[in-house]
């Protein structure tokens, strides 16, 4: 089954689209963020991708810097590994979609509820 969840619509911030310039070139550790799931699994993603989530974007851009962002690690004790990986895939899908590659995002039906709860939490 292939579906696109309305609840997971792309975030359209004021600075929206121009931020979605993602390059395939060099990679630097400082530009990545490590997201850690409830079971302690780690997902290393580009900060740019993680900022698809408004919650993470606020963490990364707020003035009184969060200690998490300085270390480049954010732990989500309430998000399971399966869901967190799906969310990371969604971040990248969203960047691709924004750059004009219109594909569908596949969501397994049994993940839907938990994924929507996580998406709500992350403002994604």
């Amino acid at each position: 089954m292939v579906c696109v969840l309305p609840g997971l619509g792309r975030e359209k911030g004021k600075e929206g689209e121009e931020r979605v310039v993602a390059s395939a070139g060099k990679m630097r550790k400082e530009d990545t963020l490590k997201l850690i799931s409830a079971e302690g699994f780690e997902f290393v993603v580009d900060r740019k991708a993680a900022m698809v989530s408004q919650t993470i974007r606020n963490m990364l851009t707020s003035p009184g810097s969060f200690s998490e962002t300085e270390h480049g690690e954010v732990t989500f004790p309430e998000i399971s590994t399966t869901i967190l990986e799906k969310i990371c895939q969604y971040f990248y899908w969203s960047l691709q979609y924004a750059s004009g590659k219109e594909t569908e995002f596949h969501i397994e039906p049994e993940l839907t509820l938990e994924l929507m709860m996580a998406a709500n939490y992350l403002h994604t």
């Binding site: 993602a22 390059s23 395939a24 990679m27 302690g40 699994f41 780690e42 997902f43 290393v44 993603v45 580009d46 991708a49 990986e85 990371c88 990248y92």
Partner: peptide, 10 residues
């Protein structure tokens, strides 16, 4: 192991 690296590429 328990780590996944998302790599943008072409």
């Amino acid at each position: 192991s328990k780590t996944t690296y998302f790599l943008q590429c072409d």
